[in-house]
């Protein structure tokens, strides 16, 4: 009997150790897997590729279009100044309707401030390359954020957005330069368009796009007048009405003085909606 008792205790102890060992072993495997995955995304040994950041004013800017009020608009230059351009790999897809900062395992930043001309190139020119970052971890970059800030130098100095071009209607021609000194922060989820973007594979190159919808300002004659787009757009007529000697050259401060309060407010309200990811909307904060 005395011999049996220690044996029994040992049996209980061994069974307990074996069973608990199995349990914790499974957990350890999972934790190691997650941890390795996280490490592989940040270590130098990981698989890498190249990520390009592009800005796109779409065919509206490259080819011109007719505004909701019948002005045929063409663009000479559309300068946007971009900063803090960042791509994210989010496990939980970013929801621009909710806003906030993307919760990402991987972030890739394109440093610096960049002024680009969205009207550069021909009618079929590709979106403008803002910059690229090499040796980024592979994976799906499914969110992007950027700021539109005042340029410190160059042709857009002092402004985050400068739109220069020509509008024609009924034999009248108006040259315009509309300048915006306000600054914005945009955050968008996955690119919405013909193709899927942001999937970086080993040794490959993928791109992400910051898209700007200028039909939101001027409206689009090809869209019904009662469409939300045209209802919210100021159109070109308010700018034409303040032209002097066939020219409009004004920043937001001047436009506040010259436009009707209704038209000015429409412009203020619509400017934050310029930034998109393809056809997907962005969350915007006015800085």
């Amino acid at each position: 009997m005395k011999k049996l008792f220690p044996i029994a205790v040992m049996v209980v102890f061994l069974v307990a150790v074996v069973l608990s060992g199995c349990g914790s072993g499974t957990e350890q495997d999972t934790e190691t897997g997650t941890s390795n995955e996280a490490a592989s995304q940040t270590s130098g040994e990981t698989q890498v590729g190249t990520l390009e950041f592009r800005a796109n004013g779409e065919d509206f800017v490259r080819q011109g279009f007719v505004s909701k009020d019948g002005w045929a608009i063409t663009f000479d230059h559309v300068y946007v100044t971009l900063a803090d351009v960042t791509a994210y790999q989010c496990e939980t897809p970013y929801d621009a309707h909710k806003g906030g900062k993307p919760q990402a395992a991987v972030e890739v930043v394109r440093p610096g401030t960049h002024t680009v001309d969205l009207a550069e190139g021909g009618e079929d020119a590709p979106p403008i390359l803002v910059g690229k970052v090499e040796d980024v971890p592979v994976g799906h970059y499914n969110a992007i954020s950027w700021k539109m800030v005042k340029a410190a130098s160059g042709p857009a100095k002092g402004y985050s957005l400068v739109i220069m071009g020509k509008a024609e209607k009924d034999g009248k021609t108006i040259n315009f330069a509309i300048k915006n000194e306000k600054e914005y922060s945009y955050t968008g989820g996955e690119y919405v368009g013909d193709e899927r973007k942001g999937i970086v594979q080993e040794g490959g190159t993928a791109d992400l796009e910051m898209t700007f919808h200028f039909d939101h300002i001027f409206g689009d004659a090809e869209t019904p007048a009662d469409d939300e787009l045209n209802v919210g757009a100021p159109g070109f007529e308010p700018f034409a009405a303040i032209a002097e000697n066939g020219t409009v050259d004004a920043d937001m401060a001047a436009l506040k003085e010259k436009l009707s309060s209704k038209d000015y407010q429409k412009l203020v309200d619509i400017l934050p909606t310029l930034g998109h990811v393809g056809e997907g909307h962005c969350h915007c904060e006015v800085l």
């Binding site: 039909d215 393809g278 056809e279």
Partner: peptide, 8 residues
């Protein structure tokens, strides 16, 4: 997507 608007 439709007419320049879309979501995922």
């Amino acid at each position: 997507r439709q007419a320049g608007h879309g979501d995922m």
